[in-house]
């Protein structure tokens, strides 16, 4: 009888028994949030050994029938590649939706010249730094077709390496690589960058320059320079180093940063155009020529840039001997 009671009790206890949960406490995961396309450390782009004069372009000339200018005119709009949110150069104003900046205004001058005074026949396409050359050529490095643009104006440094793939207009701005840091960082020039993480846009000439500095900074590449400012603000890097015009646009958006040290490279900035479209190169150079002559260039520099990097004179164009 006693056995029965024990077994019955076991049945009842079993039926009411509490179920056990096997949940375990989870530790706090370490979390790193990055913009897409960050390389840390950066892949350093190769440099061409072919000597050339990077500033050289074609002498201004008229558009020819059946050429690239005629094609743009027939299409009814100029397709222009610009940087992603490059403040002061070309950025979309969040309030009005309009593209604003020094480069955007030069583009409007070109539009006016092509479309008989209509300044807004432009389709802006924003491009990451690494996509600029592919977009001009219409194919990427692996030969895959990509959507083509008529020209790219995105703070692009004219180099011998790039000249092998695309043509450049005459220089429209003489930039130089400098350094942007948080105020009070203790970094005063390129010599203070040893062992520090320094950001520039991927595949840009700035990455190569950083990698070759004697102080040996650690180059970090981002998809574009606005991502570099973001990384600086998030404390993920120590400095941004790229052309002074671009840095001015970044510094203007963050009063807690400053541009330090003298410029340590010469970065002629030009408009990239397909090599075959030589009539477009000549046409654009004609527009730039008249902007310099009329004082329009100087007005735009004053409107957009002088407040941040001081006044400047227009670059003197270098034309190839033909």
């Amino acid at each position: 009888m006693r056995i029965l009671v024990v077994v019955a009790a076991a049945v009842l206890v079993g039926a009411c028994g509490a179920q056990t949960q096997d949940s375990v406490p989870v530790g706090v995961p370490s979390v790193v949030v990055l913009p897409s396309g960050v390389q840390d450390p950066a892949v350093v782009p190769d440099v061409s050994t072919k000597p050339c004069n990077p500033k050289e372009s074609l002498r201004p000339g008229p558009s020819v029938s059946g050429g690239a200018v005629a094609e743009i005119k027939a299409r009814g709009r100029l397709v222009l590649g610009v940087g992603s949110s490059a403040y002061l150069l070309s950025h979309r104003d969040p309030i009005s939706g309009r593209m604003l900046g020094f480069e955007a205004e030069i583009a409007r001058e070109i539009s006016a010249a092509i479309f008989d005074g209509d300044r807004d026949k432009i389709q802006f396409r924003s491009l990451n730094a690494a996509e600029r050359i592919s977009a001009v050529r219409g194919v990427d490095d692996s030969g895959k077709p990509v959507e083509r643009v008529d020209m790219v104006m995105a703070g692009m440094t004219m180099t011998c390496d790039r000249r092998e793939k695309v043509a450049f207009s005459a220089e429209y701005y003489s930039a130089g690589q400098r350094i942007l840091v948080n105020k009070g960082s203790g970094i005063r020039s390129k010599d203070d960058l040893g062992g520090r993480k320094v950001c520039a846009s991927a595949t840009s000439t700035n990455i190569r320059t950083l990698a070759e500095l004697p102080a040996k900074p650690i180059p970090v590449a981002a998809a574009n320079t606005s991502d570099c400012l973001l990384l600086l603000q998030q404390g993920q890097i120590d400095a941004v180093s790229t052309g002074d015009v671009i840095l001015a646009g970044l510094a203007a958006q963050d009063k807690a940063t400053e541009i330090v040290g003298p410029s340590f490279t010469e970065e002629p900035t030009g408009i990239a155009i397909k090599r075959e479209s030589s009539d477009l190169v000549r046409f654009v150079n004609g527009v730039l020529e008249s902007m310099r002559a009329s004082g329009k260039w100087q007005t735009l520099q004053g409107d957009w840039l002088s407040e941040y990097i001081g006044g400047a004179t227009p670059p003197v164009p270098v034309y190839a001997v033909e």
């Binding site: 949030v33 897409s36 992603s84 403040y87 950025h91 400012l229 973001l230």
Partner: peptide, 16 residues
């Protein structure tokens, strides 16, 4: 709201 395009960089990071 300040009319500065740096917002787009933050939006891209957030979206990513």
């Amino acid at each position: 709201r300040q009319g500065q395009p740096q917002g787009a960089a933050y939006l891209r990071e957030a979206s990513h």
